[in-house]
């Protein structure tokens, strides 16, 4: 498709294109980090009580952190879209919500596997489990609203993201009223040196992976927005001609 030279295209904020050298370097870096994290996790000493099962921790906690990060990025993007009309904010919100669904699924699969070994049951109605499940459900609802919400889908989804963000502390607080049996976040500071370095490396590599996936998803969104814009410009040009 050729664009008439007379038409000036508005500049759009772009994430690195999926084929750019910068992007490929970031991808390579992320995979190298992940590989190193795998080695560190394999090398980390076995925990005295739980044994091998404890190693789920190196996967589970980074995923839970990314689920949280995705929700707040989604809410931030939604505020920018809803109150300042920022298209970029809207695209960031959608990309973050989709990543949140992905990492949330990892949390919800790895958590019960560990719980079965540690507590003897797959599921407990406990503060952190319930909040993660609800958070994930809200992000799924966001994606559903975006896809099937009709003409005001974007506004609807943005409002949903804001309600989801204020819901996190509410859900957490309401379930915490009952005694919590989930390991506390202070568990990280009690880890042995081998375990601690494996944990931080794993957290870092997952976070880098999140940023790589985010820029990839944003590049797709930007490309789609550009296609729509080009189609409009082409229609206008054809109208002018006729």
């Amino acid at each position: 498709m050729t664009i008439p030279p007379a038409l000036s295209l508005p500049t759009m904020p772009t994430a690195p294109a999926p084929t750019s050298t910068r992007f490929l370097a970031a991808c390579g870096g992320a995979f190298l980090l992940l590989f190193l994290a795998c080695l560190a996790v394999a090398e980390a000493p076995l925990e005295s009580v739980m044994g091998l099962v404890q190693k789920i921790f190196y996967f589970h906690v980074p995923c839970a952190w990314l689920l949280m990060l995705s929700t707040f990025v989604c809410a931030g993007g939604s505020i920018a879209y809803l109150f300042r009309g920022s298209e970029r904010g809207d695209r960031i919100a959608l990309s973050a919500a989709e990543l949140g669904v992905l990492f949330g699924m990892c949390v919800l699969v790895s958590g019960p596997l560990w719980a079965k070994a540690a507590w003897g049951v797959y599921w407990q109605w406990e503060a952190r489990l319930t909040s993660s499940l609800l958070l994930w459900l809200m992000l799924v609802a966001y994606v559903l609203a975006r896809r099937y919400g009709g003409p005001s889908a974007r506004q609807l989804a943005a409002a949903l993201a804001l309600f989801a963000a204020v819901d996190i502390p509410l859900v957490y607080f309401s379930v915490r009223f009952f005694r919590s049996i989930h390991p506390q976040t202070t568990v990280v500071s009690t880890l042995g040196p081998g375990m601690r370095s494996a944990f931080w490396l794993s957290l870092l590599s997952f976070t880098v992976l999140w940023f790589v996936l985010m820029s990839l998803r944003l590049a797709v969104e930007n490309a789609q927005a550009r296609i729509v814009e080009l189609e409009v410009l082409l229609d206008q040009a054809e109208e002018k001609k006729s």
Binding site: L134, M138, A141, A145, Y148, L160, A164, D167, L170
Partner: peptide
């Protein structure tokens, strides 16, 4: 179909 699907997760607290 959507109203319940969007509303119930938010209304859980």
């Amino acid at each position: 179909a959507l109203l319940g699907a969007l509303l119930f997760p938010i209304a859980i607290p």
